[in-house]
């Protein structure tokens, strides 16, 4: 749109009408001779910086990681030892990596199974007019605002065996905490990590759901109330179905976040103990910057990319398409 052209001709208010009409007619008839190049130039000028940034910081790294994955490379010196698919064979044959994929998927499904009902319940509750609603909302949301590494360090201290606050609380009520602590007992670590993640990310789910609830028109509630529906019925028949698109978007974000999980694991356990909490991201960092096996790390990153991409695509096609269709 080029509003300034009309603005020079007449007074401001009619000019808008002119421009709007102009642009509508353009959409119908297609670009007029003489303005086509100009429009193209505009597109080029506005889109090029974004495309250049994308290419430099997204596309090029992806390509170089893919290229790296076919070489045996230490991270410095010339990259000249081509090894074909060997790195992929090594990664896929490595129990630590398959374990890592498992952990990622456990987190994906546990997040959906636990955080969805929990987040939804809290959002519906906080949507009611109750006392201290503002305070409660803040409390639920605060963990999400705290920087991940800071939250991780705090939890690391809380979860210290013997001297940690959580062990102290457990002892205070007469129970026995695990001898090696929650983070030091391989069988408990993933579950502990998940609890911390839920604490951290529940706030985002609640915030999204509450925002979604705001967009449900009040007349629907009123109509239901006039029909004599109970609060529970209103939530089940109106609020939750109307939240559908929001829930599906949250599920998507949660899924991708779980697949890329890194920070919290790195701060709390480094993927240990005994690889009990390794994720794909910690695996590839470990292999890359840790051990200098950049080829293997490259292969792992490509596999992570493919898994995340395929899941995102499938989800888009089968789940989110409904919402995008409705929006159109």
């Amino acid at each position: 749109m080029t509003p300034e052209r009309g603005a020079t001709a007449v007074a401001p208010v009619p000019s808008e009408t002119v421009t709007r009409r102009e642009s509508t007619s353009r959409r119908v008839t297609g670009p007029r001779p003489g303005t086509g190049w100009r429009q193209r130039l505009e597109i080029v000028v506005f889109v090029t910086p974004a495309l250049a940034l994308m290419a430099t910081f997204v596309l090029w790294p992806v390509i170089s990681a893919a290229r790296m994955s076919f070489y045996s490379w230490r991270g410095f010196g010339p990259m000249d030892k081509f090894v074909g698919w060997r790195n992929y064979e090594l990664v896929l044959g490595d129990d630590v990596f398959t374990g890592a994929v498992m952990h990622n998927f456990i987190i994906v499904f546990a997040s959906l199974a636990v955080q969805l009902p929990l987040g939804l319940g809290i959002a519906l509750l906080l949507n009611r007019k109750i006392r201290f609603r503002g305070l409660l909302r803040t409390i639920v949301f605060v963990p999400y605002v705290v920087a991940e590494v800071i939250a991780g360090v705090v939890w690391f201290q809380l979860l210290q065996p013997e001297y940690g606050v959580i062990d102290g609380l457990i002892k205070a009520v007469g129970l026995t905490p695990p001898e090696q602590g929650f983070l030091g007992t391989p069988d408990l670590t993933l579950a502990t990590l998940f609890v911390v993640l839920t604490w951290k990310y529940l706030g985002m789910a609640v915030l999204l759901f509450m925002a979604g609830l705001q967009s449900v028109p009040d007349d629907l509630y009123e109509a239901a109330q006039i029909d004599g529906a109970s609060w529970w019925q209103v939530q089940r028949r109106i609020a939750i179905p109307m939240l559908g698109p929001t829930i599906r978007t949250w599920m998507f974000l949660s899924m991708i976040g779980s697949l890329q999980l890194f920070d919290m694991v790195w701060v709390l356990t480094h993927g240990g103990p005994a690889n009990a909490t390794t994720t794909m991201a910690t695996y590839l960092i470990n292999q890359g910057t840790g051990r200098g096996n950049y080829g293997i790390a490259g292969a792992a990153s490509v596999i992570l990319f493919v898994i995340a991409f395929v899941m995102a695509l499938v989800y888009q096609v089968f789940v989110l398409r409904r919402d995008t269709k409705e929006a159109r």
Binding site: P61, A65, M68, V149, A281, I285, G288, T289, G290, A297
Partner: peptide
């Protein structure tokens, strides 16, 4: 060291940078 290294590597995708 590892944490900063990891940040620098940016999930390995920006190694060149």
């Amino acid at each position: 060291r590892a944490v900063v290294g990891a940040l620098c590597a940016g999930v390995l995708l920006t190694v060149a940078a």
